[in-house]
Amino acid sequence: MSSGEALSYVHSDTASQVLCNALPDERLRDVLNSNMVFRERVKGTCRISDERKTTIDLTLQAVWDKFAPAQQVGGRPAQVNVNNKVVIDVSIAETDGYRSASKRTPILRAQAAANLESTVRGLLEELVPVLARQTDDLPDVDDDGTIAFASTPLNAGQFIDLPRPVQVLQLCTVAENTLGFDVVKAIENGTCTLRKPDGTTLALVVVDSVGSSAFTDRVARRPAKITDSSVTVRLRDDAMLDLMIGDTDPAIAEKLVQALGQG
Rank of each mutant, 00 (worst) to 15 (best):
S100F: 10
D57R: 11
L194F: 13
N189Y: 13
V168Y: 02
T135R: 09
G263K: 10
G246R: 01
L7H: 00
A132P: 00
T200P: 09
K85G: 03
A259F: 15
T173D: 06
K66P: 10
R234S: 09
R236H: 08
R218E: 14
R221T: 11
R39P: 01
I147V: 14
L202A: 04
Y9A: 02
A259G: 09
T248A: 05
T105G: 00
Q258K: 14
D137K: 15
A114N: 11
V80S: 06
D143E: 15
L131W: 00
S209Y: 11
R109S: 08
D237W: 06
S100M: 11
T232G: 03
L28I: 02
I56G: 00
R109L: 00
G211S: 03
D238K: 02
E117Y: 12
V63E: 00
D242H: 13
T201E: 14
A6H: 04
A93H: 01
T178G: 03
V166M: 04
V257K: 01
A70W: 08
L60N: 01
S102N: 05
N155Q: 13
A70F: 10
V73R: 00
E254G: 05
S213I: 11
R195Q: 14
L28G: 00
T248F: 05
R218Y: 08
R218C: 04
P106G: 01
A113L: 08
L169F: 06
R222Y: 12
M36W: 14
L235R: 02
L202S: 04
A253S: 11
N189A: 07
D137I: 08
A186F: 12
R164P: 10
M244E: 09
N21G: 06
F159Y: 15
V42K: 10
L32Y: 03
V141Q: 07
V168H: 05
R29K: 15
P106A: 01
S118H: 12
L28Q: 00
G97L: 07
P153C: 04
L116I: 03
G74R: 02
L127W: 01
S2F: 07
K225L: 11
T216C: 07
V174K: 03
A150K: 14
Q71D: 15
G74C: 06
R47L: 09
Q79K: 13
I88R: 01
Q17D: 15
D242F: 15
T201F: 14
S91Q: 11
